[in-house]
Design a protein around this nucleic acid. Structure first.
Ligand SMILES: [Zn+2]
Ligand SMILES: [Zn+2]
Ligand SMILES: [Zn+2]
Ligand SMILES: [Zn+2]
Lengths: 135, 135
DNA sequence: TATAACCCTAGAGTGCAGTCTAAGGTCAAT
DNA sequence: ATTGACCTTAGACTGCACTCTAGGGTTATA
């Protein structure tokens, strides 16, 4: 049984974050010490691990909520359901990736066209390009 | 001289967005009609164009603020300054890109390992993997 | 016994980029 | 004269994921 500070240190998040997760239903409020301190069991610790892990692979807290529901009811769900969930997320991530690549390309084009010299920027191609309506 | 609705339609943003930009100092409040309607000059329209363009290449409103300052004082600034600004942004974008690629890879690995079958997900490798502490 | 280091709560604040609401004024056309 | 489409304002609300504050209680150590 660990207190919030220990778990926070272990999971590398703040105490506030842990309380925030609880308030938003990602962790179910569990045991308390006599003084009212939160006490986390091994199961709780694993659950936090799940949340951190899912966050690390790019799920939002909302999605983690849904994932946790899948996890809790995993005998009623199939691998198909869960894989589908992950694949849907991959689609979103792919869109974000394409968007960022586009942005990078635009910025690179902008940068490449600029002479980078020390004269006044009155002729700067970057400022010119940004002034032009693209749509 | 165009009214806010016309400019909004032209720039494909909402009237509210235009007023929001004004409130946050991205556009300087300009002429008004007798009735108090905002009237946008060619210069204003070009300035909005700059903002939209910069947004499209991935600058935040804060960064656009700085860019606009560079633009306004471009005879005191050099191409070097402006290129530096863009290059700093490219570095940030590259970091976001790497992060998203990492996330995509993780999700793909997760998805690939799951059988996707119709049996109960009690054995699902996705749920197992997420439960494991990565750090 | 005092001090530090921890814990609790409710609720407010942050940053981003808008979006919406209420309550009203204006303009063109029927 | 009355629609309807447009314009004005201040200020509240959204979603995301925290982060901080105030005002207290508890526990370990010197
Ligand atoms: Zn130059
Ligand atoms: Zn230049
Ligand atoms: Zn399976
Ligand atoms: Zn599976």
């Amino acid at each position: 049984m660990m207190k919030i500070g220990e778990l926070a240190a272990l999971a590398k998040v703040s105490r506030d974050t842990l309380r925030f997760y609880e308030k938003h239903g990602l962790i179910t409020p569990g045991l308390r010490s006599e003084a009212g301190y939160r006490l986390y069991s091994e199961t709780d610790v694993r659950r936090i691990g799940f949340i951190i892990g899912a966050k690390e692979v790019g799920f939002t807290l909302n999605e983690i909520h849904q994932l946790l529901e899948l996890e809790v009811t995993k005998d009623e769900k199939s691998c198909h359901d869960i894989k589908h969930f992950v694949d849907a997320k991959i689609t979103i991530v792919n869109q974000r990736l394409a968007e960022i690549k586009r942005i990078k390309k635009s910025l690179q084009t902008l940068s490449d066209a600029c002479c980078g010299g020390d004269e006044p920027a009155t002729h700067c191609t970057i400022l010119e390009a940004l002034s032009e309506q693209t749509n």
